[in-house]
Amino acid sequence: MTLDDLRAFVSVCESGSLSAVARELGCTQSAVSQRIKRLERELGITLLERQPRGVAPTHAGRILHRSAADGLGGLDHALRRLDDLRQGGGGTVRVTTGATTVRHFMSAAVVAFRQRHPRVNLEFQTENSSRGCFQALAANTADLAWITIGPPVRGVQQRPVIELPWVLAVRADDPLAELTEIGPDDLAAIRHIRLPENSVSRHRLDELLTRQGTEPDSTTSVADWDTAILLAELGLGHAVVPALPGWHESARRDLRLIPIPWLPALAAGWAVRQWDALSPVAVEFARTVAASLTDPEPEPEVVG
């Protein structure tokens, strides 16, 4: 039994897929399967069972997964602390998030953090969903994940940082651009540019609109919030999106962002495996981002 065997086993339990773990590790599915079989031979008990889609831990597998995940998390924390000591105050903070997150949520924090810690490496990797971010945390390829806060996820701790009110992005010459806020009847008549299909924001918005009995016609869908806003600015439809910190309406002549006050705000923030297992520099980076968002410089009004 090796640490690599245990890491592979934990990753398979959390992803439910041998092939997904093989891709993450850069090896074959057969190699991952051999690691699991080696554990099963040494322990004398079956740890995984086949499911219609993927694999799942047996009762014995769940027992080992809980203990191994906790133990590996503590070991990874110790190894990162030792590496920080070896580098004399350096180290690495690994962040996974969406493609446009750094621009909207972290640009000021990155500058401030870099000034205080010039020797710390900041590594950013892009995922297109919260699930992908959770898998990166489980695979130990990321320390921090910036996500749209959703339902509880086993093995992941979520911490909200900022609330994002919903706005309607419209072209400046659209009749709706004259309104000071958007009501349910206004929303029912829009040409809706839908948010990414696998995103928490889309699921949350769909739930809210269904609950209100408001189901606008959809004309297109996009891969991220920025594209939805851009298409609305170009007149291809209307986008219901969170009010992003990095979007300043006053700098875009053809765009209006109109509040939708009756829709509950969306929360964004950090996800980690264990807060107390993070390195000190990772904790400080997370706090720096939070501080930059909760005490920002004054911004222009969203309605022109």
Results as ranks from 00 to 15, higher is better:
residue 257 L to M: 15
residue 268 A to N: 11
residue 250 S to V: 02
residue 253 R to L: 14
residue 267 A to P: 08
residue 248 H to V: 03
residue 243 A to N: 09
residue 250 S to Y: 07
residue 249 E to P: 06
residue 243 A to V: 00
residue 271 A to L: 05
residue 285 F to S: 02
residue 273 R to E: 11
residue 255 L to N: 07
residue 288 T to R: 12
residue 277 A to H: 05
residue 275 W to H: 13
residue 242 P to F: 01
residue 279 S to Y: 02
residue 282 A to D: 04
residue 274 Q to S: 15
residue 282 A to V: 00
residue 268 A to V: 03
residue 246 G to D: 06
residue 285 F to C: 05
residue 253 R to T: 12
residue 288 T to Y: 11
residue 253 R to M: 13
residue 243 A to R: 14
residue 285 F to T: 00
residue 266 L to V: 00
residue 247 W to C: 09
residue 244 L to R: 12
residue 246 G to R: 06
residue 253 R to C: 08
residue 245 P to G: 06
residue 255 L to W: 03
residue 246 G to E: 09
residue 276 D to G: 02
residue 247 W to A: 04
residue 277 A to V: 01
residue 286 A to Y: 01
residue 286 A to H: 08
residue 264 P to H: 04
residue 284 E to I: 03
residue 254 D to N: 14
residue 276 D to S: 12
residue 280 P to L: 03
residue 264 P to D: 12
residue 268 A to F: 01
residue 243 A to L: 15
residue 275 W to Y: 10
residue 245 P to I: 03
residue 245 P to R: 08
residue 251 A to E: 14
residue 242 P to L: 04
residue 266 L to S: 03
residue 282 A to H: 01
residue 287 R to V: 03
residue 265 A to C: 03
residue 288 T to G: 11
residue 272 V to Q: 12
residue 253 R to A: 15
residue 268 A to W: 00
residue 260 I to P: 04
residue 248 H to M: 05
residue 252 R to L: 15
residue 272 V to P: 11
residue 278 L to Q: 06
residue 247 W to V: 09
residue 276 D to Y: 02
residue 282 A to K: 01
residue 285 F to H: 03
residue 257 L to N: 13
residue 264 P to C: 10
residue 278 L to K: 02
residue 275 W to C: 09
residue 281 V to D: 06
residue 265 A to F: 01
residue 263 L to T: 11
residue 247 W to H: 12
residue 246 G to K: 08
residue 259 P to Y: 09
residue 244 L to Q: 15
residue 274 Q to P: 00
residue 259 P to L: 14
residue 271 A to R: 06
residue 276 D to E: 11
residue 261 P to F: 02
residue 256 R to D: 08
residue 263 L to I: 12
residue 284 E to S: 05
residue 244 L to W: 00
residue 276 D to T: 02
residue 282 A to L: 03
residue 260 I to L: 10
residue 285 F to D: 03
residue 277 A to T: 01
residue 283 V to L: 15
residue 267 A to G: 11
residue 275 W to R: 14
residue 254 D to I: 00
residue 252 R to S: 12
residue 258 I to H: 05
residue 288 T to E: 15
residue 272 V to S: 12
residue 247 W to E: 15
residue 267 A to E: 15
residue 249 E to M: 08
residue 283 V to R: 14
residue 280 P to I: 01
residue 246 G to P: 04
residue 249 E to W: 10
residue 259 P to W: 09
residue 242 P to Q: 07
residue 287 R to Y: 06
residue 260 I to N: 11
residue 266 L to F: 00
residue 282 A to N: 01
residue 274 Q to N: 14
residue 242 P to C: 00
residue 274 Q to F: 10
residue 278 L to I: 00
residue 252 R to T: 10
residue 264 P to Q: 09
residue 242 P to N: 04
residue 248 H to D: 13
residue 272 V to W: 03
residue 255 L to T: 07
residue 275 W to D: 14
residue 259 P to N: 13
residue 257 L to S: 12
residue 254 D to R: 14
residue 268 A to Y: 01
residue 279 S to K: 00
residue 266 L to Y: 00
residue 255 L to F: 09
residue 269 G to F: 01
residue 252 R to P: 04
residue 264 P to L: 08
residue 288 T to D: 10
residue 263 L to R: 07
residue 245 P to V: 02
residue 250 S to H: 14
residue 281 V to T: 10
residue 282 A to Y: 00
